[in-house]
Design a protein around this nucleic acid. Structure first.
Length: 816
RNA sequence: GCCGGAGUGGCGGAACGGCAUACGCGGUGGACUCAAAAUCCAUUGUCCGCAAGGGCAUGAGGGUUCAAAUCCCUCCUCCGGUACCA
């Protein structure tokens, strides 16, 4: 018996498969196509941990199984290579980010090959290469030409630790997505993509996607559609003029209870409405607000509200009453119209504010028709309108329609749908990104530079400085150019694009990665896209996934693709915690690498453990004992397959049992892999191997069945443990160059029928016995057999059962 | 607060109306060994019992059903997301 040596197998088969080009993209025109994609990884200096394997091993298993089922598979890998860490490292060490990136991608690729993640490496892409980023720039211009890219000067989210501006998605919760540090605001001119134009479509199309509910819910929440009304409140200005101040409300039904209005500190008309007497007080309040970070301002919703009276009054167009206009930072500058009507009786935030500053509180909604008083707290529930003039008696729901229409007729408002999502800030004052292909001309304004790629120049240092300008601004030779439109002097835009721009179209590039004259070949894209199976972590619920959906819809509108959603089916792998119950991190020193695991237990054991340890989506913990279990499993298979077949008298019962168990296993493993239940697929294989091991001495009495079982079980095992499957396939002399091109076993339904079945006997729902009956037995026979069972007869003690329920093939329940 | 997801042996988990605890880990006893590792065999929810057998167990409490971990209602805990969005 040969001893088990996984290193020997890995040394032999890895190069063998590479030589035969096993993972090449399928090209059979008669077969269906399947595009299986992993999230575009950023190649960090830390390399891969076993946590990443929870992404890459399952997609590899799916791809292998599809290939064996005769499907053309596209399963590519590439690098989201632009980004801050490489640049930070470059700043520290002076090594060019391109070189850092090359080192890191080499490591990633090597590690992926270590556990035999089977990618078509001939399609590898790198978003930091000019061959790629010229097309990222092309898409920038596509958006620019369609009026979807614009420059604007406003307050941005800014991470002081990373020294970089952030999009709203990247600054969710007032926290930087990369460093988790708190975010401040900075006023800088920036480039935006008009994703808000697509808000409704981004929302509507979610419903048709086979994505985790949680991710869809997060996107709906982020898009944040609300239906309400805009109402104009005229404000008498100190100089005698009138300013029309629109406010947005979802509760126009409460407008008779509006006792004051509030502007956000950022409101553009704040200075105009501030009376001379209040000027000093308002400006010192603005200073106070500016000194507070956004996190302070937003995180603690329970803190005492602050604000200052502007001295002006607004006219409630429904009541004709003049109500004071305040400025307060609980009203946000970036949402709605940056001004609100405050209804303290029916909005708790307004209630808090009114209490603090002794403003009047009115009750205008009676929930379930009964006023309940609003002195202590606001009643936010819907109800019947009271104290609301002609509208009294209406329900909140109908009042919202009636009153918004009323406002429209009278010309002081209209129904309005608003979204929470903001435009996507894409420019970054950083070196290591795709340059924005725009030339600024004093005469023509921003002009597209269509001479792509606009190459990243070499610069002396990559360090961003406090000027808020990109390091590219220091490369004056590069920056100074001529305007493509008028030929006059022009200056290049020195911002680069956020990495999320690169990853918003990469899935298209994989269809035809070598295209020279266009971002992709439409024929190839038609063949492969949308992505059939997209797998990655849940952290990109809003960010990458919403940006990529937006890009796809823009391309659809431009007639470049014929689908509106890029990812048909999405799955999120669960996080893998380390053995100390904490997230793996370099600083905690608890990172487990695939390198050390493969060295000790081999790639097959690692792959099986990652699949077996628990449900694909669940958060799980790495365990050294756990992997020793799958390592033992691999060795058990090895031993079983070394066992010689001793000739013996045929045993039909055993033959049948083997066929039955094999068919059961084929069905279970096939279904479980297809539905991402890898843990139970491995368990089913373990059970079958255990079954075979317990019958190995008598295998000769069912030689044909035994051999068929060995062959099929190897094929079932092949996607999950490719090395041992290949090794044993060759040793046993099964046909074909490789097991990985063997036919996936076909389920033999007939083998699943058995002569007899075991039936559980319950009395009053409690298990009291078992019996074996012919599998075709009808309900009457089963009932009679159950009642005549001695143990059951004893329990019933001669009593005639009131009712008997028979579940064919499973159980019988007797109610005495 | 709101939105998602989850609570099952000592542990990871399986079963998602029909025999709870598959599979694995760990534990215990044994075989092999001078010994250990590796391997193999047996056993392993809990309580009562010598045993046969029985009682109790899927976060808590109700309900539907012949039958509930699974469906419905109320509540608790944990994880993730989000939060002054008018």
């Amino acid at each position: 018996m040969d001893s088990f040596d996984f290193r020997d197998m890995e040394r032999r088969w890895s190069p063998f498969w590479e030589r035969m080009n096993l993972y090449a993209t399928g090209q059979d025109p008669d077969s269906p196509n399947f595009y299986c994609l992993d999230y575009f990884p950023y190649p960090s200096g830390a390399g891969l941990s076993v946590g990443h394997c929870r992404n890459y091993i399952p997609t590899d298993v799916i791809s292998r199984k599809k290939r064996m089922a005769g499907v053309n598979v596209l399963h590519p890998m590439g690098w989201d290579a632009f980004g801050q860490p490489a640049e930070e490292y470059a700043i520290k060490t002076g090594i060019h980010p391109a070189e850092v990136t090359r080192t890191n991608t080499d490591t990633y690729r090597r590690q992926m090959k270590l556990f035999e993640a089977g990618y078509d490496w001939s399609r590898e892409i790198d978003s930091s290469s000019p061959d790629y980023y010229r097309w990222t720039q092309f898409f920038f211009l596509l958006l620019f030409d369609r009026g979807l890219a614009y420059q604007s000067d406003g307050f941005q989210m800014y991470c002081p630790a990373c020294r970089i501006v952030l999009s709203n998605e990247e600054a969710a919760g007032g926290v930087c997505w990369r460093c988790s540090g708190s975010v401040t605001r900075k006023r800088l001119p920036q480039w935006y993509f008009r994703i808000t134009d697509y808000a409704q479509r981004l929302l509507d199309d979610l419903s048709g996607l086979d994505w985790p509910e949680g991710i869809k819910a997060m996107q709906r929440n982020w898009i944040g559609r609300s239906e309400g009304a805009e109402v104009v409140f005229p404000v008498a200005l100190p100089g005698g003029d009138t300013l029309n101040m629109p406010v947005y409300t979802t509760r126009i039904d409460t407008i008779f209870g509006a006792t004051f209005c509030v502007m956000a500190p950022e409101h553009p008309d704040l200075q105009a409405v501030t009376t001379p007497e209040k000027r000093a007080e308002v400006s010192s309040y603005l200073k106070l607000v500016a000194a507070r970070s956004d996190t302070d301002r937003q995180a603690d919703t329970g803190r005492d509200k602050t604000g200052v009276f502007t001295g002006s009054h607004a006219l409630n167009p429904f009541t004709g009453e003049k109500i004071p206009l305040w400025v307060a930072d609980y009203v946000l500058g970036g949402y709605g119209t940056a001004a609100i009507m405050a209804v303290p009786g029916h909005d708790q935030r307004d209630h808090d504010f009114a209490k603090r500053f002794s403003l009047p509180i009115l009750e205008v909604i009676a929930p379930e028709g009964v006023p309940r008083g609003v002195d202590e707290a606001a009643t936010e529930a819907d109800g019947i309108l009271i104290n609301s003039g002609a509208f009294s008696g209406l329900s909140s729901d109908s009042a919202r329609h009636v009153m918004a229409e009323h406002a429209r007729e009278k010309g002081f408002g209209h129904p309005e749908v608003r979204f929470r999502i903001r435009d996507w800030l894409v420019s970054r004052q950083r070196y290591w990104g795709a340059p924005i292909p725009i030339i600024h001309c004093a005469k023509c304004g921003p002009v597209p530079d269509r001479n792509l790629p606009v190459l990243l120049p070499d610069v002396d240092g990559f360090q961003p400085d406090e000027s808020g300008l990109s390091p590219l601004a220091r490369s004056t030779g590069w920056m100074k150019t001529t305007c493509p439109k008028c030929g006059g002097p022009g200056e290049r835009e020195t911002s680069t694009m956020a990495g999320f721009a690169c990853s918003s179209w990469y899935f298209l590039r994989f269809a035809s990665p070598g295209e020279k004259d266009r971002p992709f070949d439409p024929e190839e894209v038609k063949k492969w896209l949308p992505v059939d199976m997209y797998v990655g972590g849940a952290e990109h619920a809003v960010m990458h996934l919403i940006y990529a959906r937006f890009f796809t819809k823009v391309m659809y509108d431009a007639g470049m693709v014929d689908f509106t959603e890029p990812f048909t089916c999405l799955k999120n792998q669960g996080m893998l915690l380390s053995y100390d119950h904490q997230k793996m991190s370099k600083s905690k020193g608890n990172v487990v690498t695939p390198d050390e695991v493969v060295e000790k237990y081999g790639a097959d054991a690692l792959r099986l453990y990652i699949l077996f340890m628990g449900p694909f989506e669940a958060e799980l913990e790495w365990s050294e004992e756990g992997i020793s279990g799958t390592y033992r499993f691999v060795k058990r298979i090895w031993k079983l397959f070394q066992h010689p077949l001793e000739p013996a008298e045929p045993n039909p019962a055993l033959q049948k049992e083997i066929r039955y168990n094999l068919a059961k296993t084929v069905r279970k493993v096939t279904e479980d892999i297809d539905s991402f239940q890898f843990n139970t697929a491995v368990a089913a294989l373990m059970e079958f191997i255990n079954f075979m091991a317990s019958h190995r001495e008598s295998a000769g009495s069912a030689a044909a069945e035994w051999d068929a079982a060995r062959k099929d079980v190897l094929v079932l095992l092949a996607p999950m443990a490719p090395f041992i499957a290949e090794e044993l396939w060759h040793r046993l002399g099964y046909p074909g160059e490789t097991i990985h091109r063997a036919q996936w076993p076909v389920l033999k339904e007939d083998d699943l029928t058995q002569d007899t079945v075991e039936i559980a006997i319950q009395v009053m729902g409690k298990l009291r016995g078992r019996m074996t009956v012919p599998s075709g037995a009808d309900n009457g026979t089963i009932e009679a057999l159950a009642l005549s069972n001695p143990r059951i007869a004893e329990i019933l003690a001669g009593a005639k059962p009131r009712r008997v329920i028979v579940v064919p093939g499973s159980l019988v329940n007797i109610i005495p």
